[in-house]
């Protein structure tokens, strides 16, 4: 998104439609930010630009990657072999951690959790949803994955191995969901629309072209 050119000097004020801070941690955010700006550690503009940059990182980037992998076998091979360098082909910068891409099949269904914190492939999926960071998801997924999947409305047959990936260290995982049946000949754009955020975490399957879930 091009920069809108409005000035960011109001970064320490509040726009009228935004709720006033009322809690101590919200005051702490203001205090730290103003001190950092006063001391020249960061500028208000840098903070505002970073906020804006994160708003532009959405799961659509991930959906583009998956749709391309579904339609281009060589790309998928490269993606599975080296996530970081392969997403760079699409202009996505993924640095600092190793991106590992795993593929869901009829025999193996991956789902990702971080039991120790909230590791998430943010350059590809944006900011993690609240549930991904929640204590219930982090606690339960490694022990009762099928109960968790059921809460997401996802039914994986017991003949398929569910493999929970606990993202404990320097690895960030992206799941390639199964390509839905009946999508032969669809454009990459149309396929990307079937790839939801949750299907790339593994708590859901991709959408059916008619809008439903794929049969697992």
């Amino acid at each position: 998104m091009p920069h809108d050119g409005h000035d960011h000097d109001h970064a320490t004020t509040f726009q009228p439609d935004i709720k006033e801070p009322s809690e101590e941690w919200e005051f702490l955010e203001i205090a730290l930010r103003e001190l950092l700006i006063d001391k020249g550690v960061v500028s208000a503009r840098e903070i505002a630009d970073t906020v804006e940059a994160w708003e532009n990182k959405t799961p659509e980037a991930g959906a583009q990657i998956i749709a391309k992998a579904w339609t281009d076998a060589d790309f998928k091979s490269r993606l599975l072999a080296n996530g970081n360098s392969t997403v760079a082909e699409l202009g996505i910068v993924f640095e600092g951690t190793q991106l590992v891409v795993v593929e869901n099949t009829a025999d193996l269904h991956h789902m990702v959790v971080c039991t120790l914190c909230s590791c998430y492939p943010r350059p590809i999926l944006g900011m993690p949803p609240l549930w991904y960071k929640s204590k219930s998801y982090r606690a339960r997924t490694v022990r009762e994955p099928r109960a968790v999947l059921a809460e997401f409305g996802t039914d994986i047959p017991t003949s398929t191995e569910v493999r929970v990936l606990d993202s404990t260290a320097d690895i960030r995982y992206l799941v390639i969901p199964r390509r839905p049946d009946g999508t032969d000949g669809m454009s990459v754009e149309a396929l990307a629309a079937l790839v939801t955020r949750d299907s790339m975490i593994g708590t859901a399957t991709a959408l059916q072209p008619d809008g439903g879930r794929t049969a697992a």
């Binding site: 490694v142 022990r143 109960a147 017991t158 569910v162 929970v164 606990d166 320097d170």
Partner: peptide
């Protein structure tokens, strides 16, 4: 709550 062949992997 898992099926017989289910697994958990960690780094």
């Amino acid at each position: 709550e898992y099926a017989a062949g289910d697994t958990v992997a960690a780094d």
